[in-house]
Protein backbone atom coordinates (compact mmCIF):
# COMPACT_ATOMS: atom_id res chain seq x y z
CA UNK A 1 0.00 0.00 0.00
CA UNK A 2 1.50 3.32 -1.11
CA UNK A 3 1.31 6.72 0.45
CA UNK A 4 -1.54 9.08 -0.39
CA UNK A 5 -0.62 11.53 -3.12
CA UNK A 6 -0.29 15.02 -1.56
CA UNK A 7 -1.20 16.74 -4.83
CA UNK A 8 -4.42 14.79 -5.33
CA UNK A 9 -7.72 15.93 -3.85
CA UNK A 10 -8.90 12.31 -3.81
CA UNK A 11 -6.38 9.62 -3.08
CA UNK A 12 -7.37 5.96 -2.78
CA UNK A 13 -4.85 3.28 -1.88
CA UNK A 14 -5.47 -0.44 -1.88
CA UNK A 15 -9.22 -0.17 -1.44
CA UNK A 16 -10.73 -3.62 -0.92
CA UNK A 17 -14.36 -4.40 -0.16
CA UNK A 18 -16.34 -7.62 0.16
CA UNK A 19 -20.08 -8.12 -0.02
CA UNK A 20 -20.33 -11.52 1.56
CA UNK A 21 -18.10 -13.70 -0.61
CA UNK A 22 -18.17 -11.33 -3.55
CA UNK A 23 -15.18 -9.04 -3.89
CA UNK A 24 -16.62 -5.69 -4.98
CA UNK A 25 -13.28 -3.89 -4.86
CA UNK A 26 -9.86 -5.45 -5.27
CA UNK A 27 -6.87 -3.43 -4.17
CA UNK A 28 -7.89 -0.33 -6.13
CA UNK A 29 -5.65 2.76 -6.31
CA UNK A 30 -6.97 6.04 -7.67
CA UNK A 31 -5.78 9.64 -7.59
CA UNK A 32 -7.95 12.53 -8.71
CA UNK A 33 -6.36 15.95 -8.99
CA UNK A 34 -8.20 19.25 -8.49
CA UNK A 35 -10.10 20.23 -11.63
CA UNK A 36 -9.92 16.76 -13.12
CA UNK A 37 -12.91 14.96 -14.62
CA UNK A 38 -12.54 11.22 -14.13
CA UNK A 39 -15.07 8.88 -15.71
CA UNK A 40 -15.43 5.33 -14.45
CA UNK A 41 -16.86 2.75 -16.83
CA UNK A 42 -17.32 -0.98 -16.65
CA UNK A 43 -19.92 -3.74 -16.80
CA UNK A 44 -22.52 -3.96 -14.04
CA UNK A 45 -21.14 -5.53 -10.89
CA UNK A 46 -17.66 -4.31 -11.70
CA UNK A 47 -17.46 -2.25 -8.51
CA UNK A 48 -17.55 1.18 -10.11
CA UNK A 49 -20.45 2.47 -8.00
CA UNK A 50 -18.91 0.94 -4.89
CA UNK A 51 -15.66 2.74 -5.57
CA UNK A 52 -17.52 6.03 -6.00
CA UNK A 53 -19.50 5.54 -2.81
CA UNK A 54 -16.31 4.87 -0.82
CA UNK A 55 -15.21 8.43 -1.52
CA UNK A 56 -17.88 9.90 0.80
CA UNK A 57 -18.16 6.76 2.91
CA UNK A 58 -21.63 5.70 1.82
CA UNK A 59 -19.77 2.39 1.66
CA UNK A 60 -16.99 1.50 4.06
CA UNK A 61 -13.96 -0.39 2.82
CA UNK A 62 -12.53 -3.48 4.47
CA UNK A 63 -8.90 -2.65 3.70
CA UNK A 64 -7.01 0.27 2.24
CA UNK A 65 -7.18 4.02 2.64
CA UNK A 66 -9.30 6.81 1.19
CA UNK A 67 -8.14 10.41 1.51
CA UNK A 68 -10.33 13.35 0.47
CA UNK A 69 -8.97 16.88 0.69
CA UNK A 70 -6.55 15.93 3.45
CA UNK A 71 -9.07 13.99 5.55
CA UNK A 72 -8.82 10.25 5.95
CA UNK A 73 -12.33 9.06 5.04
CA UNK A 74 -11.91 5.43 6.09
CA UNK A 75 -10.76 6.44 9.59
CA UNK A 76 -13.75 6.08 11.91
CA UNK A 77 -12.50 8.97 14.01
CA UNK A 78 -12.82 11.37 11.09
CA UNK A 79 -16.03 13.43 11.25
CA UNK A 80 -17.50 12.21 7.99
CA UNK A 81 -19.93 15.13 7.81
CA UNK A 82 -16.97 17.46 7.26
CA UNK A 83 -15.95 15.39 4.24
CA UNK A 84 -19.49 15.20 2.88
CA UNK A 85 -19.98 18.96 3.07
CA UNK A 86 -17.22 19.26 0.49
CA UNK A 87 -18.31 16.35 -1.69
CA UNK A 88 -21.58 16.69 -3.61
CA UNK A 89 -23.28 13.55 -4.83
CA UNK A 90 -25.83 12.91 -7.55
CA UNK A 91 -27.67 9.58 -7.59
CA UNK A 92 -29.15 7.42 -10.29
CA UNK A 93 -32.60 7.68 -8.72
CA UNK A 94 -32.28 11.44 -8.02
CA UNK A 95 -33.31 10.96 -4.37
CA UNK A 96 -34.90 14.39 -4.11
CA UNK A 97 -36.85 14.96 -0.91
CA UNK A 98 -40.48 14.53 -2.03
CA UNK A 99 -41.87 16.29 1.03
CA UNK A 100 -40.08 19.55 0.21
CA UNK A 101 -40.49 21.95 -2.69
CA UNK A 102 -37.67 22.27 -5.20
CA UNK A 103 -36.43 25.43 -3.48
CA UNK A 104 -36.53 23.82 -0.06
CA UNK A 105 -34.68 20.79 -1.43
CA UNK A 106 -31.85 23.09 -2.43
CA UNK A 107 -32.03 25.28 0.68
CA UNK A 108 -32.31 22.76 3.52
CA UNK A 109 -28.70 21.60 3.77
CA UNK A 110 -27.46 25.14 3.22
CA UNK A 111 -29.54 26.22 6.22
CA UNK A 112 -28.84 23.42 8.67
CA UNK A 113 -25.36 22.28 7.61
CA UNK A 114 -23.79 25.49 6.28
CA UNK A 115 -25.85 27.65 8.67
CA UNK A 116 -26.67 30.17 5.97
CA UNK A 117 -29.40 32.73 6.43
CA UNK A 118 -32.68 32.02 4.68
CA UNK A 119 -32.31 34.93 2.28
CA UNK A 120 -28.80 33.89 1.35
CA UNK A 121 -29.77 30.24 0.86
CA UNK A 122 -32.71 31.27 -1.29
CA UNK A 123 -30.53 33.48 -3.44
CA UNK A 124 -28.07 30.63 -4.01
CA UNK A 125 -30.94 28.27 -4.82
CA UNK A 126 -32.48 30.65 -7.36
CA UNK A 127 -29.14 31.22 -9.07
CA UNK A 128 -28.57 27.47 -9.34
CA UNK A 129 -32.05 26.88 -10.73
CA UNK A 130 -31.23 29.41 -13.45
CA UNK A 131 -27.94 27.63 -14.05
CA UNK A 132 -29.62 24.24 -14.52
CA UNK A 133 -32.30 25.83 -16.69
CA UNK A 134 -35.49 25.56 -14.62
CA UNK A 135 -35.83 28.87 -12.75
CA UNK A 136 -39.64 28.68 -12.82
CA UNK A 137 -39.90 25.39 -10.90
CA UNK A 138 -38.82 26.59 -7.46
CA UNK A 139 -42.19 26.18 -5.77
CA UNK A 140 -43.06 22.87 -7.42
CA UNK A 141 -42.80 19.55 -5.65
CA UNK A 142 -40.19 17.15 -7.12
CA UNK A 143 -42.61 14.38 -8.10
CA UNK A 144 -44.35 16.77 -10.52
CA UNK A 145 -41.15 17.27 -12.51
CA UNK A 146 -39.86 15.11 -15.34
CA UNK A 147 -36.93 12.83 -14.62
CA UNK A 148 -34.50 15.14 -16.37
CA UNK A 149 -35.75 18.12 -14.40
CA UNK A 150 -35.51 16.17 -11.14
CA UNK A 151 -31.93 15.20 -11.86
CA UNK A 152 -31.05 18.82 -12.62
CA UNK A 153 -32.57 19.86 -9.30
CA UNK A 154 -30.50 17.15 -7.63
CA UNK A 155 -27.37 18.62 -9.22
CA UNK A 156 -28.36 22.09 -8.04
CA UNK A 157 -28.98 20.74 -4.55
CA UNK A 158 -25.47 19.30 -4.42
CA UNK A 159 -23.88 22.42 -5.90
CA UNK A 160 -25.61 24.65 -3.34
CA UNK A 161 -23.16 23.41 -0.74
CA UNK A 162 -20.26 24.77 -2.84
CA UNK A 163 -18.56 21.39 -2.92
CA UNK A 164 -14.96 20.96 -4.02
CA UNK A 165 -15.79 17.61 -5.62
CA UNK A 166 -18.88 16.28 -7.37
CA UNK A 167 -19.65 12.56 -7.56
CA UNK A 168 -22.12 11.29 -10.16
CA UNK A 169 -23.46 7.75 -9.79
CA UNK A 170 -25.00 6.82 -13.16
CA UNK A 171 -26.86 10.15 -13.30
CA UNK A 172 -28.64 9.43 -16.59
CA UNK A 173 -29.35 5.71 -16.29
CA UNK A 174 -32.88 6.20 -14.96
CA UNK A 175 -33.83 8.80 -17.55
CA UNK A 176 -35.84 8.55 -20.75
CA UNK A 177 -33.54 8.98 -23.77
CA UNK A 178 -34.84 12.44 -24.68
CA UNK A 179 -33.97 13.76 -21.21
CA UNK A 180 -30.41 12.51 -21.03
CA UNK A 181 -28.98 15.40 -23.00
CA UNK A 182 -30.37 18.13 -20.74
CA UNK A 183 -28.62 16.53 -17.75
CA UNK A 184 -25.37 15.88 -19.61
CA UNK A 185 -25.32 19.52 -20.78
CA UNK A 186 -25.41 20.70 -17.18
CA UNK A 187 -22.59 18.29 -16.35
CA UNK A 188 -20.54 19.45 -19.33
CA UNK A 189 -20.91 23.06 -18.18
CA UNK A 190 -19.69 22.05 -14.75
CA UNK A 191 -16.68 20.26 -16.24
CA UNK A 192 -15.79 23.32 -18.30
CA UNK A 193 -15.94 25.48 -15.18
CA UNK A 194 -13.20 23.32 -13.69
CA UNK A 195 -15.19 21.34 -11.15
CA UNK A 196 -13.47 18.20 -9.91
CA UNK A 197 -15.77 15.39 -10.96
CA UNK A 198 -15.87 11.63 -10.65
CA UNK A 199 -18.56 10.20 -12.88
CA UNK A 200 -19.82 6.64 -13.16
CA UNK A 201 -21.67 6.46 -16.44
CA UNK A 202 -22.38 4.54 -19.63
CA UNK A 203 -22.55 7.75 -21.68
CA UNK A 204 -19.47 7.41 -23.87
CA UNK A 205 -20.29 10.68 -25.62
CA UNK A 206 -19.94 12.50 -22.32
CA UNK A 207 -16.77 10.59 -21.50
CA UNK A 208 -15.22 11.52 -24.83
CA UNK A 209 -16.21 15.18 -24.53
CA UNK A 210 -15.46 15.90 -20.90
CA UNK A 211 -13.21 13.29 -19.33
CA UNK A 212 -9.54 13.85 -18.66
CA UNK A 213 -9.13 10.22 -17.71
CA UNK A 214 -11.26 7.15 -18.08
CA UNK A 215 -11.02 4.26 -15.64
CA UNK A 216 -12.20 0.85 -16.80
CA UNK A 217 -13.18 -1.54 -14.03
CA UNK A 218 -14.10 -5.19 -14.12
CA UNK A 219 -14.85 -7.63 -11.29
CA UNK A 220 -13.60 -5.21 -8.68
CA UNK A 221 -10.27 -4.55 -10.37
CA UNK A 222 -9.14 -1.31 -11.93
CA UNK A 223 -8.12 -2.61 -15.36
CA UNK A 224 -7.04 0.51 -17.23
CA UNK A 225 -6.59 4.21 -16.48
CA UNK A 226 -6.14 6.12 -19.73
CA UNK A 227 -6.94 9.28 -21.62
CA UNK A 228 -10.17 9.15 -23.68
CA UNK A 229 -8.15 9.20 -26.91
CA UNK A 230 -6.18 6.10 -25.99
CA UNK A 231 -9.26 4.33 -24.75
CA UNK A 232 -11.34 4.83 -27.85
CA UNK A 233 -8.62 4.78 -30.54
CA UNK A 234 -6.49 1.85 -29.42
CA UNK A 235 -7.89 -0.04 -26.44
CA UNK A 236 -5.23 -2.46 -25.27
CA UNK A 237 -6.88 -4.76 -22.81
CA UNK A 238 -8.94 -7.72 -23.99
CA UNK A 239 -11.79 -7.22 -21.53
CA UNK A 240 -11.92 -3.52 -22.32
CA UNK A 241 -12.18 -4.31 -26.04
CA UNK A 242 -14.99 -6.74 -25.32
CA UNK A 243 -16.82 -4.19 -23.19
CA UNK A 244 -16.44 -1.40 -25.73
CA UNK A 245 -17.58 -3.67 -28.57
CA UNK A 246 -20.81 -4.27 -26.66
CA UNK A 247 -21.67 -0.68 -25.86
CA UNK A 248 -20.36 1.32 -28.81
Amino acid sequence: MGQPNPNAIISIRGATKHFGKVRALNDVDLDVHPGEVVVIIGPSGSGKSTLLRCINRLETIDRGEVWVDGLQVNDRKTNINLVREEVGMVFQQFNLFPNLTVLDNIMLAQRIVRNRKKSEAEEVAQELLIKVGIPEKGNTYPLKLSGGQQQRVAIARALAMNPKIMLFDEPTSALDPEMIKEVLDVMLDLAREGMTMVVVTHEMGFARAAAHRIIFMDQGYKITDTSPEDLFENPEHERLKLFLSKIL
Partner: peptide, 27 residues
Protein backbone atom coordinates in the same frame (compact mmCIF):
# COMPACT_ATOMS: atom_id res chain seq x y z
CA UNK B 1 -38.81 5.37 3.33
CA UNK B 2 -36.27 4.24 0.76
CA UNK B 3 -32.59 4.05 1.70
CA UNK B 4 -31.81 6.66 -0.96
CA UNK B 5 -33.42 9.41 1.10
CA UNK B 6 -31.07 8.85 4.02
CA UNK B 7 -28.10 8.56 1.65
CA UNK B 8 -29.01 11.80 -0.12
CA UNK B 9 -29.41 13.65 3.17
CA UNK B 10 -26.17 12.27 4.61
CA UNK B 11 -24.25 12.99 1.41
CA UNK B 12 -25.18 16.66 1.88
CA UNK B 13 -23.42 16.63 5.22
CA UNK B 14 -26.48 16.28 7.46
CA UNK B 15 -26.05 14.27 10.64
CA UNK B 16 -28.11 11.13 11.21
CA UNK B 17 -30.52 13.00 13.46
CA UNK B 18 -30.85 15.96 11.11
CA UNK B 19 -31.69 13.57 8.29
CA UNK B 20 -34.23 11.83 10.53
CA UNK B 21 -35.83 15.06 11.65
CA UNK B 22 -36.03 16.93 8.35
CA UNK B 23 -36.25 14.16 5.76
CA UNK B 24 -37.17 10.72 7.03
CA UNK B 25 -39.67 11.38 9.84
CA UNK B 26 -41.83 13.92 7.98
CA UNK B 27 -42.31 11.39 5.19
Amino acid sequence: IGRGQMEAARSLGMSYFQAMRYIILPQ
